[in-house]
């Protein structure tokens, strides 16, 4: 457990010291979402209807951005081997990485989503459900993304492959996340959608680090 925490704090220290990398994903999220009012027009009723979808898709794409370098730097300078030798099982290393990714990318996206939803004129009833959906949603994305990043580690064109592998698997997250926000906007209970998202998180939490750990072991061979 101490090793896990020290690995996690190492991730956080690294992301603080390379602050621009962390901010880039957030900036992408805001910029990409800001393009939609320009593209589809600023009419509040259209924007408000589309807002949950826009925010979810942009969050999905923004969460993918830093994945490329999640294990890449460690593989290149050889510290990946040391991480795998530090006594933690590879799955725990992957889990620490996913947790680091969520704290440095998922959480900022979640915090930025609320002002963005207001800017996109989303009805106020839907915003709590949107954020409640993004909370498990971004965590699932971090877990799936860390598994994907570990699988493409060392591949040619890994950065292009990664979205191709992760986005189809992330489709259910998107469906239920937007479903929760839409239900709340329409006056229905977002609870079933949120429970399904929580179930997805409960399934991804043990399985994704296992897959990522297996991939890391093969990558370090």
């Amino acid at each position: 457990m101490t090793r896990f925490l020290s690995l996690l704090s190492r991730e956080l220290r690294l992301s603080i010291r390379h602050g621009s990398d962390t901010l880039a994903a957030l900036l992408f999220f805001l910029l990409a979402a800001a393009l939609f009012p320009l593209a589809i027009g600023p009419a509040p009723e259209t924007l408000g209807r589309l807002a949950p979808g826009i925010i979810w898709v942009c969050a999905l794409l923004a969460a993918l951005l830093p994945l490329d370098r999640l294990f890449g730097a460690e593989l290149e300078d050889g510290s990946l081997d040391q991480l795998l030798l530090c006594g933690l099982p590879p799955a725990a290393v992957a889990l620490a990485k996913a947790a680091g990714h969520w704290l440095t990318t998922g959480l900022p996206l979640l915090l930025a989503a609320a002002p963005l939803a207001i800017m996109l004129r989303m009805p106020e009833d839907g915003i709590p459900a949107l954020l409640a959906g993004l909370l498990p949603g971004t965590a699932i994305l971090s877990l799936l993304g860390s598994a994907g990043a570990a699988i493409v580690l060392g591949a040619r064109r890994g950065g292009v492959l990664l979205p191709l592998l992760v986005l189809p698997l992330a489709a259910p997250v998107l469906i239920f996340g937007v479903g929760a926000a839409d239900a709340a906007t329409g006056g229905l209970s977002p609870r079933p959608h949120l429970l399904l998202l929580a179930a997805l998180l409960a399934a991804a939490l043990p399985l994704c680090p296992l897959a990522a750990g297996a991939a890391l072991r093969h990558a370090a061979e």
Binding site: A147, I151, V152, L153, G154, A155, R156, R157, G158, L161, L164, L165, P168, L169, L207, C208, A211, A214, A215, H218, A219, E221
Partner: peptide, 25 residues
């Protein structure tokens, strides 16, 4: 994704393992 992934590695063995993990996911 599987088709693209197994062919994306210089070492075919790495491609087989990565593709196998992806297929199981």
């Amino acid at each position: 994704g599987h088709v693209a992934l197994v062919r994306a590695f210089d070492d075919p063995q790495r491609g087989y393992r990565a593709g196998a993990i992806l297929a199981l996911v």
